[in-house]
Computed example of a mutant assay.
Amino acid sequence: MDWKPHAAALAAKAAHPGSDWWAPIRETPRHLLVERWFTPGPCGWTAVDGPSQEEVWATAAYSDTTLVTRIGPVHADHAAPGRTVTGLPTSSSTLPGLVVTMLRHGRLTPGVRLLDLATGSGYSAALACHRLGDGLVTTLDIDPYLTQAAAERLARIGRHPKAVTADADRELPGVYDRIVSMVSVPRIPTPWLTALAPGGRLVTTITGTGLIITADKTDDGGATGRVEWDRASFMATRAGEDYPPALNDVFATARTDEGTVTLSPFPVLDVMQAWEVWSMLSLAAPGIEHRTGTGDDGSRMTWMLHADGSWARAHMGAGERTATVHQGGPRRLYDLLEQIRWRWLDHGELPVYGAKVTITPDGGTTLSRGGWATTL
């Protein structure tokens, strides 16, 4: 494959000629790091073999797109081409534009020691090696196959970062000037602060939100920073091969139970596409699973589900501007959503983006802005 024109086109989308990341993108053969991946379909995820479909491979690898490489415990490398797999994505090669955004927030100046959390395909480590040099980059993932495969493929393209298999929530193998995480966390793990050098900087996203947090280590062992105005969403950290199963039992209840019925003054909202609202709601009630659909009568529908048994269902007929809401369980999830939507109308914005971040030495993470505050 003549990959260089494709990489140049990707660099034009994900960076610009004056950027520190222009050359790394242009000179990194991403296709050699992602030989197989999954594409979604109506019945699950289908494995695609790049080397056997070179044009498809080039188009996918050099698009500014996330390529899903693992579904549940099944990596695309181990799935027969055309095979359909069901489950949740558990690893991917993140879209290059977002990788660059996270690395840029890390302020990777020459000489800094970087910990790249969540190895995935190894693409973020490859870009970082180009910028810093191999000896200053460590890449870590909980999955031994991912670190092994990435290390082998990185070596083929002449990159040799230190690849470590470990749990990012536990003791980290070294001291670093920068920690940039390509996986989300519910709050800052204490081991990150321990492994961060004095004055070091960490960059991560918060699970279930679109929030990017940047923070610099303080003298007391904590850190201070802010929620960036950029937005991003990554897979959450996991302790095993897969994530917990979807809340299908709660969904079955939410589909049929009448619960408490109210009328909302707002139209039905696809919360996952409303980043400010979604982020604010996730901070207020972490762990909500959102689903959308269409009723038999063509009405717009949305469901909110939680592992504690709380649920909400809202629908809105064609031409209508208000929604009928059904809720049940120990909490009224839709009421929380409406409180946030009212706040947005009252203030013209929500306080999550641009918030100050204060992290205590034990990882306690507080966001605050304009009289609003929450601790993760």
Rank of each mutant, 00 (worst) to 15 (best):
W45E: 03
W45M: 09
W45K: 12
W45T: 06
T46P: 06
T46C: 11
T46D: 04
T46Y: 03
A47Y: 04
A47N: 10
A47F: 05
A47P: 06
A47G: 07
D49I: 05
D49W: 01
D49Q: 08
D49E: 14
G50S: 02
G50H: 02
G50E: 00
G50T: 03
P51F: 07
P51Q: 11
S52T: 15
S52N: 11
S52L: 13
Q53C: 01
Q53N: 14
Q53H: 12
E54Q: 14
E54F: 00
E55Y: 01
E55R: 15
E55C: 05
E55I: 06
E55T: 12
E55P: 02
W57D: 06
A58M: 15
T59H: 01
T59N: 04
T59R: 15
A60T: 04
A60G: 04
A60K: 06
A60H: 05
A60N: 04
A61D: 01
A61P: 07
Y62P: 10
Y62M: 12
Y62Q: 13
Y62C: 11
Y62L: 12
Y62H: 08
S63H: 06
S63N: 09
S63A: 15
S63P: 06
S63D: 07
D64F: 05
D64E: 05
D64K: 13
T65Q: 15
T65N: 10
T65D: 11
T66I: 08
T66H: 10
L67Y: 03
L67T: 08
L67C: 03
V68N: 11
V68E: 08
V68K: 13
R70E: 04
R70W: 00
R70A: 05
I71R: 13
I71W: 07
I71S: 11
G72N: 03
G72F: 00
G72A: 01
P73E: 08
V74H: 12
V74R: 15
V74G: 01
V74F: 01
V74Y: 06
H75D: 02
H75C: 09
A76N: 13
A76I: 09
D77T: 11
D77H: 15
H78N: 15
H78A: 14
A79G: 08
A79I: 09
A79N: 12
A79K: 13
A79E: 09
A80W: 05
A80S: 14
A80C: 10
P81E: 04
P81M: 10
P81T: 10
G82M: 08
G82H: 04
G82Y: 01
G82P: 09
R83Q: 15
T84S: 10
T84L: 10
T84W: 00
T84N: 08
V85Q: 02
V85P: 03
V85R: 10
V85N: 06
V85L: 07
V85D: 01
V85W: 03
V85T: 11
V85H: 06
V85S: 04
T86N: 11
T86M: 13
T86R: 15
T86P: 02
